[in-house]
């Protein structure tokens, strides 16, 4: 492994019972790199993302994320590691319906010992960056899809992650909103040097990345 890799995965396999979903994947992602993973539905993109991000453990193989071998970590260790290092953006936003926008943004920091004031300040600051400050007190059910995704991106950033994983972040959005969200992600990558791994099946979207990784039947093609 190399210390300018944020991710270094070797010989990754993931089986669900007899079904091999990820097969012998070797993949390195450089620090500050924007990688797009594309492939047909069912090709194993989401599964690979979950292995790389420490949401799930591989059946075999190793994942080194930000210099740390997470392959054999416990659930709790992975959770704490995700809290410190990783941000997530999902296709269906996954906001907590009972919490307001800013509280959703602050959610990863709820168990962290910082003052309530600071937590709120930071959440509002991120919402401001996402041009969502005016909706800070609104609950997700009152927000549009694009607005929800802006809140979700703000949440992914609240812990100052080294890398953000996005699984079809624009899959539920219309084209205009898709462009806006992609713009935000690109800015984060360009301005803050954030590493970004994005799953998409929109090739146009993938074009804006530094590198495209194609998947087919659980294998990385190129």
């Amino acid at each position: 492994m190399n210390n300018h890799h944020i991710i270094s995965a070797t010989d990754l396999n993931k089986d669900f019972d007899s079904l091999q979903v990820v097969k012998g994947v070797n993949l390195d992602v450089n620090k500050g790199e924007f990688v797009a993973i594309v492939g047909k539905s069912g090709s194993g993109k989401t599964t690979l993302l979950s292995l790389l991000s420490g949401l799930e453990r591989p059946s075999s193989g190793r994942v080194i994320l930000d210099g740390r071998d997470i392959t054999d970590s416990s659930e709790n260790e992975l959770a704490l590691f995700r809290r410190d290092t990783v941000g997530f953006v999902f296709q269906s936003f996954h906001l907590i319906p009972t919490l307001s926008a800013w509280e959703n943004v602050a959610l990863p920091l709820f168990p962290v010992k910082i003052s309530a004031e600071k937590r709120r300040e930071r959440a509002l600051e991120l919402l401001r960056q996402m041009e969502m400050e005016h909706r800070a007190e609104h609950r997700p059910s009152t927000l549009s899809g694009g607005e929800k995704q802006r809140v979700a991106i703000a949440r992914a950033l609240i812990n100052n992650p080294k890398i953000v994983f996005a699984d079809e972040p624009t899959g539920n959005l219309d084209s205009a909103t898709t462009d806006a969200i992609l713009e935000i992600l690109k800015c984060l990558h360009a301005d803050n040097g954030l590493s970004l791994v994005m799953v998409t099946h929109d090739l146009d979207l993938a074009e804006s990345s530094d590198r495209i990784i194609r998947m087919q039947d659980g294998e990385v093609l190129s």
Binding site: L55, E75, N76, A79, L80, F81, R82, R83, D84, V86, F88, H94, L95, I96, L107, P108, F110, P111, R155, N159
Partner: peptide, 12 residues
């Protein structure tokens, strides 16, 4: 699941 994904431990 969301709580876990964003880094809450089981105890939390």
């Amino acid at each position: 699941g969301i709580l876990k994904a964003v880094g809450w431990t089981h105890q939390e």
